[in-house]
Amino acid sequence: MKTYLIEIKLNGEWQKAEVTAKETLLEVLRNKLGATEVKNGCGKGDCGSCAVIFNGKAVNSCLTLALQANGKEVTTLKGIGTEDRPHPLQKSFVQHGAIQCGFCTAGMIVSAKALLDRNSKPSRDVIREAISGNLCRCTGYKKIINAIQGGALESKL
């Protein structure tokens, strides 16, 4: 199988990987670069659990070829905040009880972060729209929307 050497600026650090033309960014992030915080859900763009920020925009990493990320910047959940240094959005998700099984959370926070980066005070409708590509099968969306609103307030402090 023909492979290509690519370089991705993953959460601020340049990383190399050998990939084939068919491999998706999701597969390479999880299997070759250890970024298992990016979740593999439906694999066809329906659920948003694999969302990452790609050149400033939230996208499904399952619908992006790894080769298309060559030389580009990718931010995953860990690039937004870590356990030691959580982002206000992450704290807000915990405070608002916006997590049940947690599988959608990484993608939700990625979509929310991309939103807050361009709109620091989104209305509930704008939040709904921004996370409309992210499915949660546990809680319903009310607490998630509350958490994003709370996170928006915290981020500004």
Partner: peptide, 9 residues
């Protein structure tokens, strides 16, 4: 079309 994540691509 699609959703915000797919519209970005």
């Amino acid at each position: 079309l699609g959703n915000p994540l797919t519209r970005n691509r």
